[in-house]
Computed example of a mutant assay.
Amino acid sequence: MKYSAVLSFFKRPENKPGRDLCRVFSPLEFPKAILFDIYDTLVASTIGDLNAQLEKKRGTKSFVKTAKHYGFEEKLGQQWQKLFFRYIEEEHERCRKLGILRAEVLVDVIWRRILDETLPADRSIEIDEREIGLFREMCANPVALFDGVEDLFLFLKERNILIGIVSNAQYYTEVVLQWLLGRSLFDFVDRNLAIFSYKLGFAKPDPHFFRYAEVAVRLMGLAPKNVWVVGNDPINDMASSRPYGFATVLFAGKGSIEEVAGSDIDAIVGSFGNLLDLVKGLE
């Protein structure tokens, strides 16, 4: 597996339990495809996706740990932290001026810029920006699969229900998911329905994101009403996908549960066991 050297420094975590919860607010049709968010949906995360990290700008610890791991001093890690978030904000601002409201950066490009600007040009060892970006992410944002993900995926595959991804993500998101699953993500996920923000250049809740998803499912001969979007965020996942005709299932596996019934949500589940039962009940 690529990046196995980086991942060998981390222990694969135990799966996280969800909660027993299932409420249906509007009638659902048996799905022909289900599109899943990743952070705090398929996996329980410490911070969230890159946009969540940008909003919180949590300390320098993960950057310092990364610098030390690669043989550099603490002060360089502190410098990396400042540059990392500054360069992301600069890219977002550049894109806003071009009319892209929620731009997604290429975090490996950000890291390449940081390394080129802070390390000596005549250094004897070349550091791969994707490796260092993965290591920093693993330090900053440990994640674990929610219980029942694999069982649900196997059931969906048996029933010929397509599995897709609709997530704000980076290149390392696929790497980490493969590591957690112990197999390729694409053993389950249809590549035509694997929609990652870093490959688009914009992120949820940008209205273009689920327009792209709508076109992807229609090109496969599916109507959005027969496709479920499962995600943890009422805005990014539910409200953003609803205008395009998708059925919406809010995943509430962690955190507080507020009254979420509304026009944007067809159902709410607290675990993948609940979601599996919901699908089975419609057979």
Score class of each variant (00 low, 15 high):
Phe188Leu: 03
Glu91Asp: 13
Leu50His: 01
Leu21Ile: 13
Pro120Gly: 09
His208Ala: 15
Gly270Val: 09
Gly255Phe: 06
Glu126Pro: 00
Ala267Asp: 03
Lys32Trp: 05
Leu156Ala: 08
Leu156Trp: 02
Lys11Gln: 15
Ala216Pro: 01
Glu259Lys: 12
Ala103Ser: 13
Leu180Cys: 04
Ile100Ser: 07
Glu74Ala: 12
Leu185Gln: 02
Val189Lys: 05
Gly148Gln: 03
Ile165Ser: 03
Tyr212Leu: 12
Ala216Leu: 05
Leu35Gly: 08
Asn160Ser: 15
Met220Phe: 06
Leu54Met: 07
Lys32Ile: 02
Asp20Ala: 15
Lys61Gln: 13
Phe186Ser: 07
Glu29Gly: 12
Ala67Ser: 13
Phe9Val: 09
Asp266Pro: 01
Leu115Ile: 12
Asn51Lys: 06
Phe272Cys: 07
Pro120Gln: 06
Glu137Val: 00
Asn226Ser: 15
Leu180Pro: 01
Ser4Met: 05
Leu115Gln: 06
Leu7Thr: 12
Val166Leu: 04
Glu74Cys: 02
Pro207Glu: 10
Lys75Leu: 06
Ile100Gln: 07
Phe210Asn: 04
Ala44Cys: 12
Glu90His: 07
Lys280Tyr: 06
Arg113Tyr: 09
Lys32Gly: 10
Pro207Arg: 10
Pro224Phe: 09
Asn168Phe: 00
Val43Leu: 05
Ala239Trp: 00
Val166Ser: 12
Gly182Lys: 10
Val107Asp: 11
Lys68Ser: 09
Ile268Thr: 05
Glu283Phe: 10
Lys97Glu: 15
Pro142Asn: 07
Ile257Gln: 09
Glu131Asn: 08
Ile268Pro: 00
Pro234Tyr: 06
Val175Arg: 03
Glu14Cys: 07
Lys57Pro: 00
Leu185Asn: 02
Ile235Met: 09
Glu283Lys: 11
Val109Thr: 12
Glu73Lys: 13
Leu101Gln: 14
Lys56Asp: 02
Phe10Asp: 08
Ala261Pro: 00
Asp151Lys: 14
Val175His: 02
Lys199Asn: 12
Leu193Ser: 06
Gly273Trp: 01
Asn15Arg: 14
Gly221Trp: 11
Leu185Lys: 03
Val176Leu: 11
Glu90Leu: 11
Phe210Trp: 06
Ala216Ser: 15
Glu214Asn: 11
Ile125Arg: 14
Arg136Gln: 15
Leu152Cys: 10
Phe186Thr: 11
Glu91Gln: 11
Pro27Ala: 09
Gly48Cys: 04
Gly201Gln: 05
Asn192Glu: 13
Leu154Val: 12
Phe72Trp: 10
Asp151Ser: 14
Phe135Asp: 01
Val229Phe: 08
Ala203Lys: 06
Tyr171Gly: 00
Tyr70Leu: 07
Val229Met: 12
Asp20Lys: 13
Val6Ile: 15
Gly182Met: 09
